[in-house]
């Protein structure tokens, strides 16, 4: 997996959170819409925006997908484990599993 793809598996649920650091612009929208507060901005000195989203609490994710739906940048995905290999994600058109 590319170092720009962050993967977090919930211990409680069949949920995987994927973040593409390349695409995330640190706009804060996903953090704002996440009720269980699973996400937070972290410093990203390698990006001009200076921050990207990261997962701070994958286990409480409710699979509501609001972060994914409201993300303007295609930077975050909420998938079931079995979907991970089927859905394309990342820098190029590769599935997350391939990266």
């Amino acid at each position: 997996m590319s170092e720009n793809i962050l993967r977090y598996d919930s211990k409680k649920k069949d949920v995987v959170i994927l973040i593409d650091r390349n695409l995330c612009k640190g706009c804060d929208i996903c953090i704002k819409v996440c009720k269980p507060e699973c996400l937070a901005l972290v410093d990203a000195p390698d990006k001009w925006e200076g921050a990207v989203v990261d997962v701070v609490n994958a286990d409480d994710c409710t699979f509501c997908k609001l972060c994914e739906l409201q993300c303007p940048d295609f930077g975050i995905r909420i998938l079931r484990k079995d979907e991970v290999g089927k859905i394309q994600f990342g820098d190029t058109k590769k599935t997350a599993a391939e990266q």
Binding site: L23, C27, I29, E49, P72, F74, R80, Q88, K93
Partner: peptide, 26 residues
């Protein structure tokens, strides 16, 4: 079922040009 967004996108063009948080992306 999860939407395969990148299937419908020219993924090689991403990240797109819009400002962080721009509504157009949504």
């Amino acid at each position: 079922a999860a939407v395969d967004y990148l299937y419908y996108l020219r993924a090689e063009k991403l990240p797109h040009m819009w400002c962080p948080g721009c509504g157009i992306g949504i």
